[in-house]
């Protein structure tokens, strides 16, 4: 057995421990930090799987920005979780059902690293052999994202843009006309 299996095993065990800790710890500050650790472990697994760009995104988004935003929210709310006494049988059944369906789905997937997997037979060899010739980019991932699939990435930026505008519209405290009118009336009365 190669050393990679042991690394995978250790990382997965840590993932399970962190996941359980997130459920059982009641201090929300600790939970925010733990979910950051979860993302960092996930990023390490992506590195082991040779998906460096995905790992980078997971580390910066999951461990970085979400943790920081979560801390920002915790500064406004309290940092203790309310204990709920609801029965957790139904959620548990749903989670087990979905989980077993997903595991059942993996049986149809090709083995990891299988050179005959469909994904390696279609456009991937084209990209690998021609990217440098076409674009002069050593990083194929960047070339695919920004050049070959430029439309899709433009759409993604559009999604992020829309999300930002949505948050801005929902949460910004710009006054409506009615509120401004009311304030003016109050001032006149005074």
């Amino acid at each position: 057995m190669s050393i990679e299996i042991y690394i995978d095993l250790v990382l997965v065990i840590f993932l399970v421990i962190t996941g359980l800790a997130v459920i059982y710890v009641r201090n929300l500050f600790a939970v925010a930090m733990l979910s950051g650790i979860y993302s960092l472990l996930m990023a390490s697994i992506f590195v082991v799987l040779d998906a460096v760009d995905v790992a980078f995104t997971e580390a910066s988004v999951g461990a970085g920005i979400s943790t920081v935003l979560m801390l920002g929210v915790l500064a406004i709310t309290g940092n203790r979780e309310k204990v709920s006494h609801k029965s957790s049988v139904l959620p548990l059944l749903i989670v087990i059902g979905t989980g077993s369906l997903l595991v059942y789905g993996t049986w149809d997937l090709p083995m990891f690293g299988d050179p005959n997997a469909p994904v390696h037979m279609h456009v991937a060899p084209e990209y690998i052999s021609n990217t440098y010739k076409h674009t002069g980019m050593p990083n194929i991932v960047t070339a695919v994202l920004a050049s070959y699939r430029g439309y899709d990435t433009l759409g993604e930026v559009g999604v992020i843009f829309t999300a930002g505008i949505g948050v801005l519209l929902l949460l910004s405290k710009r006054k409506t006309k009615k509120e401004v009118n009311q304030q003016n009336k109050l001032k006149e009365k005074l």
Binding site: I65, L69, G72, V157, F161, V167, L168, L170, K173
Partner: peptide, 16 residues
């Protein structure tokens, strides 16, 4: 865009 959206989201949450 990404940096500005992240900072905007933080402004919106932290400003409440």
């Amino acid at each position: 865009t990404v940096a500005a959206v992240m900072i905007t989201i933080f402004y919106m949450f932290a400003g409440r």
